[in-house]
Design a protein around this nucleic acid. Structure first.
Lengths: 199, 199
DNA sequence: CCAAGGACTGAATGATGGTTCAATCCTTGG
DNA sequence: CCAAGGATTGAACCATCATTCAGTCCTTGG
């Protein structure tokens, strides 16, 4: 026995893996999923295309992970912003502002995560993303109903519908590159009304 | 000059074209967009794959037309149902019931039209579909605002958000194959609240 | 320094499926 | 019935990438 991969090598492998993920995210943010060929990702990560397969069994596996990571980051940011508020109305306003603000900050990435045509296998990960948002929102809605701030309703259905509303309302502005200044306040008003927040 | 295509031939060509569109729609309804290779569509239409290209310059052109046609049929059905009602609240209830009812009747087709991964060129047609719904709804919302049945709001934004909410709320049930019996009434309640219909 | 064996390379492979085209069949006006 | 020329065929073509692999480079323990 003359060679046995050691810590140093393992660290380098792990660094390559991270670079590949970062490269995929970078290309997505610049050119969308469409620009993410394995060759392009590998080149940007500084590895040969063949080496890519030392780290991920298939391209779909990489992008499942990329979507999961990026989505989690978004959901976490939204959750963190909402957690600073106390009333359901304020929490939901924070959700909308954070979600929309971040999406408009990285429109190409947001479009890829939300709506760009992707592999069916990667698309499945998108459902997870949307469900994560829905569950976050459902928690706030349920709390609002329990406290009496909101009228009785099915928090799951409300949350799902609101996620759809948010995503749909952002697709237009994301394609255009900008949102009118009144879009986000109007969206907050809409969502408050949809929740039954008393005016 | 010895051959000049005549009415009879033109009619046959046009019939082939229609059969191709119908075949594409049929395969979409049975196996989704994923099952729609040019070869499969041509075979079902009873023409050779090569003949397909006498009728459409590319596959994307066919499906743009298929999506446009199918979408228009859906929008028309929804518009017809809503036109029978008088108040905005009833009109919107008709929209939700018709939209959801038809989607659940042909879940595979509805999924393909709404959410299945497709060519980017075909995906663009989907935006048209959603915008058509949004415009239909925006008309009703604007009328409701004008008559005072609804509080002041931007009909376009409300309509866009509602289309997103409707679509998102249907994707789960479409994947599952059925919707719980309370889903549609709950969705109507949600949408009434979102519009500001007074209870 | 050495031999073992894992890591790395990138050109070749292969699968998919849209698109083309040379050959053939039909239709038409004469 | 004929010649002209459009319609039809479906097998071949081709472009695109994801994936593989034989050869090479590096790292390791001795």
């Amino acid at each position: 026995m003359a060679y046995r991969s050691t810590e140093r090598v393992k660290a380098r492998l792990s660094a390559s893996r991270e670079r590949i993920i970062a490269a995929a995210l970078g290309i997505m943010a610049e050119h969308g999923y469409a620009g993410c060929s394995v060759a392009a990702v590998a080149e940007r990560a500084g590895v040969a295309t063949g080496s890519f397969y030392r780290h991920f069994p298939t391209k779909a596996d990489l992008f499942a992970e990329v979507f999961r990571t990026a989505s989690q980051r978004e959901v976490d940011a939204v959750a963190r912003a909402a957690a600073l508020e106390t009333s359901t109305a304020e929490q939901m306003a924070a959700v909308v502002e954070t979600f929309s603000g971040r999406a408009l900050q990285s429109p190409r990435l947001a479009y890829a995560l939300l709506a760009e045509p992707v592999d069916p296998a990667v698309d499945a990960e998108r459902l997870v993303f949307r469900r994560a948002y829905a569950e976050l929102i459902a928690g706030y809605v349920a709390a609002g109903v329990a406290s009496g701030e909101l009228p009785p309703q099915d928090p799951e259905l409300t949350a799902t519908a609101l996620v759809g509303a948010l995503a749909e309302a952002m697709v237009g502005p994301l394609a255009a590159g900008v949102a009118g200044p009144e879009t986000i306040p109007a969206l907050i008003t809409f969502i408050h009304r949809a929740l039954g927040v008393s005016p």
